[in-house]
Amino acid sequence: MQIHVEVNGRTQTFEAMPGESLLSLLRREGYLSVKRGCEEGDCGACTILLDGRSVRACLLLAAQAEGRRITTVEGLGSIERPHPLQQAFVDAGAVQCGFCTPGMILSAKALLDETPRPDEGQVREALDGNLCRCTGYKKIIEAVLLAAQRMKP
């Protein structure tokens, strides 16, 4: 079936099997920042924003994306103009292997969109579905707080 979605601001029509996961569709269509870590909704590497909310692409069927707005980390910034969260992740040393990073950044973006000046507890809560084995999360939490500080209106 055809799926009509807006991905990173661009209207797209994808050919999909209705019963496949949104993760598999997005990766096939070249959104490779959406990572496959468990395909069971447990690791958070495939986190995307669906209508601005962080969700797991592996726990959605492709058909559910019909008419929705999707953001992947490719849509946030470029090497010349990274998003403040992306820059903060680099500056705070929050990127080790980088496999969980896109999902972490998107969960953080959903938080900052809703709560521009979160406290540490709110950051921890917003990122609780994104597993990381490299960092111990400390520098990731610091990066989100740093980005919030830099983005203050």
């Binding site: 909704g41 958070g44 986190t47 669906l50 962080s54 797991r56 726990l59 969960s107 609780d128 579905g129």
Partner: peptide, 9 residues
């Protein structure tokens, strides 16, 4: 329930 992305969905 679960984690934030699950509660969001």
């Amino acid at each position: 329930v679960g984690s934030r992305p699950i509660r969001n969905a």
